[in-house]
Structure formats: structure tokens, C-alpha cells
Design a binder for these strands. Structure first.
Length: 414
RNA sequence: GUGGCCGUAGCUCAGCAGGUUAGAGCGCCAGGUUGUGGCCCUGGAGGUCGGGGGUUCAAGUCCCCUCGGUCACCCCA
């Protein structure tokens, strides 16, 4: 084992896997930019308060925050999730609403790694601030769905729920608490659930599962405004033909959600971590971060998990990484140096061998690279002012004048 | 943070109940073919057997600790 390794819970992504990442990001960017979303780049660490403010009770900030003190004595934390940073940037810069943003960024959580879970993982996501129009909820949910579809994922389920708002949630929580008071919960929740009784609904243990089967459902206790909003979201998704499953137990890990919440579950993943994406509305978040009351909604998708799901379904293969031309030079390397440069300048991808290897070795490299053509320059060609152009698929080759090489290569590649 | 399983070449692994200089396949390099890749053949390079301590005449093999990987719980992307 080598002396230094990537830190616990982190991974190096090397070619050819990295090419797949690039393609995934491109698919995502294409999908959301067609919908008017612009890229936002924000720091990958923030004052720890940014995250604490939005998620006090949640595990994500209570026990998983990757925080430390910097040389200036500031308490900072590596970003555990994407929304808080974008909302903080919105509050700081006040762009004209509706502000539609997308991002691709690393997130950090200090937890033990396992299948589909890392200390550093990467999320693609969107956030929109400045409107609580239910049609926007539909747009955002549909975008998340579209990304899965664009990747070719077929076994993905869209889970949908509404968590209500200040007008209806408090009353519902009281209702739920009194129900839970006489329920036989799992060991952990039997101890207490005052902090966040909603979590009990999300508990996966059998005891809680069966005990809460008959629990009052939030969707049945929404206030008039929330009920109307949710109804519009659902009919909108129906209109767009986006299939969803109503999941009244869907709570999600961040406390800031209001009204619409959703999750994309990958059916092909049998690991415990099968959520490839999730999000929802957060109408109180901007205020919590010291800004004006501004409704917002967004979602995040995990790159590692999306790719895991793609593997499981056998879709979205990595692109074949191949250069078009391999220059084989047995006459000292000068021709390879000039020719690769010239080809690249002409927009043709080209590579070569180094270290003065044998012709056989250079051809092997050419073959492994997947190049379609090899351009050979030896002493004969050098003397004659020509090059040998070989089609590596078939094996035919011809001699062409040095000056016409780029043209001939173009013709062969087209 | 808790628990199960696992750490032997770049990769996937073998290594019989502790016993000579630790092996294979793939990959890599070179040669067979002094101007030609894919197939084949031959050779070569590459290992403090994760690290430390212990038991023993002798440890890759047994014991302890530690680090790392992996899976699960919790929770999440």
C-alpha cells in the first residue's frame, strides 16, 4: 500500500470514468439551461452559521458537519448541501427574482463511507428564488425527472409529498404527537420525538412502520392555501405526463422544507442508499439567513449515485475516448512534434508516442488509443517529402504529400 | 459513532495443518518480425505479503493493536 491515499471517504476519478462525469454534467447543464437556469459558483466552505441556521435539528448539521477553525479564528464548515450556499448568495447579492440557478459542486459530510455514500460527494442541482407559483414547483420537479430520463434511467420512482406551512403544520404536529403518545414505537423513537415528530414517519424500523400506519397524514391536514397549491402541483405533473407516487411519509433530512417535497428513488439500486435526488420548497429559508421573505424551491442530485444507478441499469455508458490520429515517427520525433501540433490546430485530435520507441511499439500505442488513422513518418517519407497514411480499422495505407496531409486525414475521418 | 467481513505485484486472485530464493492470469516493457497495430510465442521489470508488536528454531500463514478497504445500522445524494 502506498504511503499516501485519498482521504477516507473520498475518491479519485480518473479517465475513462471521468469522461462519463463530464458527459453527465453536460446532460444536466443542457437540460436546465434550456429552461433558463444559469450556473452559480459559490465557495465550498461558509461561515458555519450559514448551515446551522438552516438545519439545526438535522443530522446533516448536528453530527455530520465537516467544520473547523481557520487560521483567522473563524468557524467555517465545508458545505454539507447545496441550497444554503445559493440562498446565502441570493440574500447577499439580491439578483432580480425569479432567480433561476444551477450548480455542480462537491458536498462534504463527516460520516462513515459505505455503498453510495462518501465524505465528499458531488451534487448537481437547481434553485429558484422569488416565486411560490405552483407551476414553478411543477417545472422544477419535471426537470429532475427529465434528467433521469435523459440518462436513460427507467427504474426511477418520483416520490411526492407536501409538508404544509406555518399555517397548517403546527396544528398537524400536535395531532401527530398525540397519536404517537399512545403508539408502540421503535426503541430509538420511544425515547422521544419532541424535536421532530415528522421523523418518526420516516423511520424505517418495523415498530415505527406499523405503529404509524394509521397515523394522521399531513396531506389530509393541509390548510386551504397549501392544499390548493399541492393540487395544482399534482395536476401540473399530470399534464406534463410526469408519473409520481404520493408518499405521505416522505419527510427528507433538511428541516427547512415547506409544501412540496420530492425524491427520486432508483429502483435498480439495492443498497440502502437508493435516493439519487431530492428536493423541495423552502419558503422561509431566505429570511432565516437574514434576507427579505423570499420563497424558493430546488433539488439536488448525487453524481456518484446517479452513475451507480446507471451502472445497475446498464445505461449511460462512458463515451469512447479516442483521439483521431496517431503520429508514428521513427525519424527522430521532429515530424511528430510538428504534425500533432498542426493537426490539433486544424481541429483534428492527435497524439503520439514519446521516448523514441520502436515502430512496433508506436503502432501498439496507436491501436490501444483507439485512433482511426496512423500517420507514419520514417526516413523514407522524410526524404521524399511524403507521409504514409494508414487506416487502422482496415489496414489500407497510402502515400500522400506532406503538404496535403491534413486534407487527406479529414477525408478519411469524414 | 457502533458492528460484520476483508487487506499478498498496477488489476483480479492462489499460497495446501506455520517450513527453502512468495506464484498465476491480465496489464506493462522488450524480442520473435532491422518500416507496421490487433492474434500467437519467448523473455523481462514489478512485492518492506497494509503497518507495529508478540508467540515460535521458523510467521504471508497463529495472537494482539493500529491503519485502510468494504458492507450494514443511523442518516442521507
Amino acid at each position: 500500500m502506498t504511503e499516501f491515499r485519498a482521504p477516507v471517504g473520498t475518491r479519485d476519478v480518473l479517465p475513462p470514468e471521468s469522461a462519463r462525469w463530464e458527459r453527465l454534467v453536460a446532460v444536466f447543464a443542457g437540460t436546465v439551461e434550456r429552461a433558463g437556469y444559469g450556473l452559480v459558483l459559490s465557495p465550498m466552505f461558509e461561515d458555519v452559521g450559514v448551515f446551522e441556521r438552516v438545519g439545526e435539528g438535522t443530522d446533516v448539521v448536528r453530527k455530520e458537519m465537516y467544520d473547523f477553525e481557520d487560521k483567522g479564528g473563524r468557524r467555517v464548515a465545508l458545505r454539507p448541501e447545496g441550497t444554503a450556499s445559493v440562498v446565502r448568495a441570493y440574500v447577499q447579492h439580491r439578483p432580480t427574482p425569479p432567480f433561476k440557478a444551477w450548480y455542480v459542486a462537491p458536498n462534504f459530510r463527516y460520516e462513515r463511507p459505505q455503498a453510495g455514500r462518501f465524505r465528499q460527494h458531488h451534487q448537481l442541482g437547481v434553485e429558484v428564488l422569488g416565486t411560490d407559483d405552483a407551476d414553478l414547483d411543477v417545472e422544477v420537479v419535471a426537470l429532475a425527472w427529465s434528467v433521469g430520463a435523459a440518462l436513460g434511467l427507467a427504474q426511477v420512482t418520483l416520490l411526492l409529498n407536501s409538508l404544509g406551512d406555518d399555517a397548517c403544520r403546527p396544528a398537524y404536529l400536535e395531532l401527530l404527537k398525540s397519536f404517537l403518545a399512545s403508539a408502540a414505537l421503535c426503541d430509538e423513537h420511544a425515547g422521544g420525538y419532541e424535536q421532530n415528530p415528522l421523523r418518526v414517519l420516516d423511520c424505517k424500523r418495523d415498530a415505527c412502520r406499523s405503529a404509524t400506519e394509521t397515523a394522521p397524514r399531513l396531506v389530509d391536514n393541509l390548510c386551504e392555501a397549501c392544499a390548493a397549491h399541492f393540487a395544482r402541483v399534482r395536476s401540473g405533473l399530470d399534464t406534463l405526463g410526469v408519473p409520481y407516487t404520493l408518499q405521505p411519509r416522505l419527510v427528507r433530512g433538511l428541516d427547512y422544507y415547506t409544501r412540496t417535497t420530492f425524491e427520486l428513488a432508483a429502483g435498480a439500486l439495492d443498497s440502502a442508499q437508493n435516493a439519487v435526488g431530492g428536493g423541495g420548497r423552502y419558503d422561509k429559508l431566505a429570511e432565516a439567513l437574514g434576507g427579505p421573505a423570499t420563497p424558493g424551491i430546488g433539488f439536488g442530485m448525487g453524481i456518484e449515485r446517479l452513475l451507480l444507478a446507471c451502472d445497475a441499469e446498464g445505461v449511460f455508458p462512458g463515451p469512447p475516448s479516442a483521439v483521431d490520429v496517431w503520429v508514428v515517427d521513427t525519424a527522430g520525433g521532429g515530424a511528430a512534434l510538428a504534425l500533432t501540433h498542426e493537426l490539433r490546430a486544424a481541429g483534428i485530435s492527435a497524439d503520439r508516442s514519446f521516448d523514441g520507441r520502436s515502430m512496433k511499439s508506436q503502432f501498439k500505442s496507436a491501436d490501444r488509443s483507439g485512433a482511426r488513422v496512423a500517420l507514419v513518418v520514417g526516413n523514407d517519407e522524410l526524404a521524399a517529402g511524403t507521409m504514409t497514411l494508414r487506416d487502422l480499422r482496415g489496414g489500407d495505407q497510402e502515400t500522400v504529400a506532406r503538404a496535403d496531409v491534413v486534407e487527406h486525414v479529414r477525408k478519411l475521418l469524414s
